Simulated scan of single mutants.
Amino acid sequence: MMMNLFSSFDPTSNFNFSLNWLSTLIGLSIIPPLFWLVPSRFNIFWNKIIMTLHKEFKILMGNYKSQGSTLIFISLFSIILFNNFLGLFPYIFTSTSHMTLTLSLALPLWVSFMIYGWLNNTIHMLAHLVPQGTPPILMPFMVCIETISNVIRPGTLAIRLSANMIAGHLLMTLLGNTGPMMTITLVNLLIIIQILLLTLESAVAIIQSYVFAILSTLYSSEVN
Rank of each mutant, 00 (worst) to 15 (best):
S29R: 11
L34V: 04
N43R: 10
S69G: 08
L71G: 08
F57Q: 02
I49H: 05
L60T: 15
I59C: 00
S29I: 12
S40Q: 05
V38G: 02
S66Y: 15
W46L: 05
L60D: 08
I49Q: 13
G27N: 10
L53F: 03
H54E: 11
G62T: 01
Y64G: 01
W46P: 00
P32Y: 10
L37D: 10
L37N: 09
K55E: 10
P39E: 12
I31K: 08
F57S: 02
F42W: 09
Y64L: 01
L34M: 12
E56V: 01
N47W: 14
G27I: 00
L28M: 14
F57M: 06
H54M: 06
I44M: 06
K65C: 01
G62H: 02
K48G: 02
G68Q: 03
W36K: 10
M51Q: 13
P39T: 03
I59E: 06
I44Q: 13
K65Q: 04
I31G: 03
I59G: 00
N63A: 07
N47T: 00
G68P: 02
L28F: 13
K65G: 07
M61D: 10
W46F: 11
L60G: 01
I50R: 13
F35D: 09
G27R: 06
P33E: 06
W36A: 13
M61N: 11
L71F: 14
G62M: 01
S40V: 01
I44W: 08
R41A: 02
P39M: 12
S69C: 08
K58S: 12
I49T: 05
S66P: 12
K65F: 01
N63Q: 05
G27E: 15
S40C: 04
L60I: 11
N63I: 09
L53Y: 02
K48A: 11
F45W: 15
Q67S: 15
M51L: 12
F57G: 07
K65D: 05
Q67I: 11
G68W: 01
G68K: 03
L37S: 11
I44S: 08
K48F: 08
V38Y: 02
I59W: 02
N43C: 08
G27L: 07
N43W: 12
E56N: 10
N47K: 13
L37K: 09
I31W: 08
S66G: 14
S69L: 08
M51F: 13
L34D: 06
S66V: 15
I50H: 03
S29Q: 10
I30G: 07
N43K: 11
I31R: 07
S69E: 12
F45G: 11
K55M: 05
I49R: 10
G62L: 00
Q67K: 15
I59K: 12
F45I: 04
P39S: 09
I30S: 03
I49D: 05
K65E: 04
N63C: 03
Y64A: 07
S29K: 11
N43T: 15
F45V: 04
P33G: 05
T70C: 07
K55P: 00
P32R: 08
N63E: 08
G62Q: 01
S40T: 06
S69I: 09
K48D: 07
L37F: 10
G27Q: 13
I44N: 09
F42H: 14
F42G: 15
G27P: 03
P33A: 06
T52I: 03
F35K: 05
I50E: 07
N63K: 10
P33T: 01
I44P: 00
P39F: 11
